[in-house]
Write a protein that binds this DNA or RNA. Structure first.
Lengths: 115, 115
DNA sequence: TTGACATATTCCTATATCGGTATATGATCG
DNA sequence: CGATCATATACCGATATAGGAATATGTCAA
């Protein structure tokens, strides 16, 4: 078996740095393909291919406008990533340090009581 | 050129679902390899290989304890993912809807004034 | 030391990628 | 209609995977 398809889910689609760059540009608003080509300095076919992957996992949406296709971010598709990684924030954020102290104390009391 | 190595960064390492499962278990505290094997129902070599990838990107740390090796999550290594995806939260979170309204109003006024 | 246990590494195969180049599709303009 | 612009797709080659099976490494116990 090979690695999971990049179109398997948002995690895989977003693992590619160029695709994150594309999203970062689109975060500023709708863009045509050639705008992305110019802004990122990538070849046009590469951009189209990356956009296809992003489209297939639902991270971007397209809209036709004459000859152009305007791409935009579809935020909610990124939510699974956000939610998953959010669960680990307490492992580095000061916000949770006090809470961790409290929980540690509670656990200690509990252990002392039952042992 | 092929796809970026899974050990290239945390984004790639975490794109694999099994590796996220491993992290989710380790989020509950230090675990030996065989614990993970039992808990996840994976083959031992596969688990070791996934742990290697996670180790190489710094997402987990190891500690030797007799015959066992105890793995634990190294949270801060996940922070780049958190920070990146955080920038998109406003695209779905109600928390930011009011703010977006305000910004839209401001932009509208600005445009009306300069045109 | 020998053996059992815990974990890591190696070898294998199938597959899906990525970039590059060429080309196809589709829309607009004259 | 023919030419041009905008984008998508097809084909190529190199590479890095993921799982499976076998095996190597390392540690403890008797």
């Amino acid at each position: 078996m090979a690695r999971a398809a990049t179109t398997a889910d948002a995690f895989n689609a977003v693992a590619e740095p160029r695709r994150r760059q594309i999203l970062d540009v689109l975060a500023g608003g709708e863009r045509a393909v050639n705008d992305l080509v110019a802004l990122l300095g990538l070849a046009q076919p590469q951009v189209s291919k990356h956009l296809r992957v992003l489209r297939e996992v639902g991270v971007v949406d397209v809209r036709e406008d004459g000859r152009q296709r305007l791409y935009r971010v579809n935020g909610p598709a990124l939510r699974p990533i956000h939610d998953w990684v959010q669960g680990y924030e307490r492992l580095w954020s000061e916000r949770f340090e006090r809470l961790d102290d409290v929980l540690a104390d509670l656990k200690k009391e509990e252990d002392d009581g039952s042992e």
